[in-house]
């Protein structure tokens, strides 16, 4: 044994043991998340699967749990999200194009960028207060107050930062070669953007849009704040019509004491999660296609 070995105590066995313990601990941490996810799905399916039926999907809410259904909230969610997309998509993509292709380096551009980042961190219920005051009260003559239109506009503002950020990423991923080729042919900037940058980035933009939509479909708080109803036994017939959405209906059922409504809530949740999973599958498919395209 040389002097060197005496002066150092490697204690390798102990150090490795510590490492092993830590690794197990870290893996366990991940498992907590996964187990919770499994429990949640299990709990909801156990409670609600038996309640799912055609009758449940096609009935209006009712005072009696076994007669109630989700027709009006389901239709409300679809209409609200569609309308929201109509508002948010062009504005969000337009802003992304501006920031990526047109914006000069100046204070206004910086301001817009910082602002978009900050808006993404504002709690959704604050958007509800914004919608309540501006769309439902100040502009009540145009929006019809606590209406479908008010809800869609509020949600459009809520998802705008998500749309802008994801569209910017998709546009940034377009190879610069393509821009130069278009410009060298005598294209104006807009001709270049419209014919080449946008089509190329479109799958990526759509992926982001779908994720934004799936965020919006699950949102409850801002819509409660603007005053979407919790009990709607009719279908919206105009933009100014009152409405409800799926998460609000679920919230309403959860908040009631009777167990029958809790079962309805679980069944509603299954429908909601099924919609979200399909949307995410679509997004993954689109992203895959987008990546394939970038590889070539």
């Amino acid at each position: 044994m040389s002097l060197r070995d005496i002066a150092f105590e490697h204690q390798l066995a102990r150090r490795h043991l510590k490492g092993r313990i830590f690794q197990v601990l870290a893996f366990a941490a991940i498992c907590v998340g996964l187990v919770m996810l499994a429990l949640l799905f299990f709990d909801v399916l156990r409670d609600g699967l038996g309640r799912l039926s055609w009758q449940f999907l096609t009935s209006f809410p009712s005072r009696r749990p076994e007669r109630a259904g989700i027709l009006s909230p389901l239709v409300g969610s679809v209409l609200m999200v569609t309308l929201m997309g109509v508002f948010a998509f062009p504005v969000g993509v337009g802003a992304a194009i501006y920031l990526e292709e047109y914006a000069p380096k100046n204070w206004l551009t910086d301001l817009i960028q910082i602002n978009v980042a900050n808006l993404a961190g504002v709690p959704s219920i604050i958007y509800g207060l914004l919608g309540l005051e501006i769309f439902a009260r100040w502009l009540a003559n145009y929006t019809g107050g606590r209406s479908l239109l008010t809800g869609s506009l509020t949600m459009a503002l809520l998802i705008l930062p998500i749309v802008i950020v994801s569209a910017r990423e998709a546009i940034r991923a377009v190879p610069n070669d393509i821009r130069l080729a278009a410009l060298a042919l005598g294209a104006t900037k807009w001709q270049m953007v419209r014919s080449h940058v946008l089509p190329y980035a479109m799958p990526g933009i759509l992926t982001g849009m779908i994720l934004a939509v799936s965020r919006a479909i699950g949102e409850t708080a801002p819509l409660i704040t603007i005053g979407a109803l919790t009990y709607v036994a009719f279908l919206p017939d105009s933009l100014k019509s009152q409405f409800t959405v799926l998460p609000i209906q679920i919230f309403n059922w959860v908040s009631r004491p009777q167990a029958g409504f809790h079962v309805n809530a679980a069944a509603g949740i299954i429908v909601l999660l099924a919609i979200l999973l399909s949307l995410n599958a679509l997004a993954i498919y689109l992203r895959h296609r987008f990546e394939q395209r970038l590889k070539r």
Partner: peptide
């Protein structure tokens, strides 16, 4: 410059056809 580029065309180092 847009008019200039139409009359004075360019071919790049790396082939860059549109997809």
């Amino acid at each position: 410059p847009v008019e200039v580029r139409r009359r004075i065309g360019m071919v790049f180092q790396k082939p860059n056809p549109f997809p």
